[in-house]
Design a binder for these strands. Structure first.
Lengths: 210, 210
DNA sequence: CAAATTGTGTATCGCTCGATACAATACGCT
DNA sequence: AGCGTATTGTATCGAGCGATACACAATTTG
């Protein structure tokens, strides 16, 4: 019963995600946002409240479109162990092919905004927890399928993978070097291939296992 | 042969470090800096050029006072393997007792400024390389002392530790939880104790395993 | 059609930012 | 002492910030 919106919320949110992804919350101005979203400042405030709220909405959409998409796709189509391996392989591939050093919006936010914003910290911690849970599920199912060695302590190994993922994405922003990124992941993934009963086969160096 | 400085460069640099540590480069204003450093704006510019140059000076002093201090102290007084273990133990202890969620200035900078500043990126990458080299040295010496299993691939394991350190400090800024931080480190440090704890038999040289 | 309501576009608010102009000040030097 | 020089304090610059006032446009409802 009034004038309708001239834009689609999800489409302009994607533009906002791109802005925050590259420059962070403080590094992105409302003018940048409005320009990239193709709307005017007042329309932005009318639709999303303020910059921080727009950031929260963008972060939530990012989590769905990128993090959860990857997790659900890998869990649906891969074996538990392969899901973990391909998860890191995809992240490394993405990090190396990104000319803007964007990294991961969630992890960027964990460092930029979480320490200074209690509510946003809880949101970010929740997203990180989803990633950790993904690792826990994969490890649990992998062990049930006898595909993950008994020597792997599931809870701590999931935490290791989470920490390594964070380190990987942060390191890639400063130094996106394939040798470094693949190297830091290799010994961790090797934990999943330790032979359970007899000898194991060492991975040839320089080859990304998948 | 003129009016002398009314302040000590190192002392005010320590105050600048505290500011940048808490809020980052963009999050710290020149007014904040001047106030905390106990000097006036023009004195700051006269002594250090501009904010970015002051940040570089602060970062360099931080690297010496904190990162290199820890590395040199641990390498001097601990066995190679214990140096690595205590390194992580100290970082976790520090992260858990820090009410301001400061993290590590170098790692914070890797995410905040490195992607947007080529010169600073090289500086940060250099500092990260020093940490990686510390791990390489410890692992090399530990293996020479028969204290690190032959199964440990030194270069990649050093990269793993670097990645894990970064992930640890970033995660701690968003979620400083002892269970999480100690858990993510435990499986990595366990790599250093593999064949030792399982059952006796320190590795006879010449027997290749894994 | 007219009234009511909501989005849009222009212009701008008050504020803080990084960085300086300028004059007063305090020291070493001869 | 008194000149030369570097530092200090005050006051402020132009630019960009987040956010909004206000009039106009577009749509639904009566």
């Amino acid at each position: 019963m009034a004038r309708p919106r001239a834009f689609n919320n999800d489409e302009v949110l994607d533009a906002a995600i791109a802005c925050f992804w590259r420059r962070g919350l403080d590094g992105t101005s409302v003018r940048d946002l409005a320009t990239q979203m193709g709307i005017n400042g007042p329309s932005l405030y009318n639709a999303f409240g303020d910059k921080r709220t727009l950031f929260i909405r963008s972060l939530e959409r990012y989590a769905s479109r990128y993090m959860r998409e990857r997790i659900e796709r890998l869990e649906r189509h891969q074996s538990p162990k392969a899901a973990i391996q391909m998860f890191f392989q995809e992240v490394i591939s993405r990090s190396l092919s990104d000319p803007d050093y964007c990294g991961c919006l969630i992890i960027n936010s964990a460092l930029e905004v979480a320490p200074h914003d209690r509510a946003l910290r809880k949101v970010v911690v929740g997203y990180l927890g989803e990633i950790e849970s993904f690792f826990v599920r994969c490890l649990t199912r992998g062990r049930a399928a006898n595909d993950v060695p008994i020597s792997v302590e599931i809870a701590d190994t999931a935490r290791l993978f989470l920490g390594l993922l964070i380190g990987l994405r942060v390191a890639a922003r400063a130094n996106p070097d394939r040798v470094l990124l693949e190297g830091m992941v290799r010994p961790a993934l090797a934990l999943l291939n330790k032979s359970k009963t007899s000898r194991n086969v060492s991975q040839p160096k320089g080859v990304t296992q998948c």
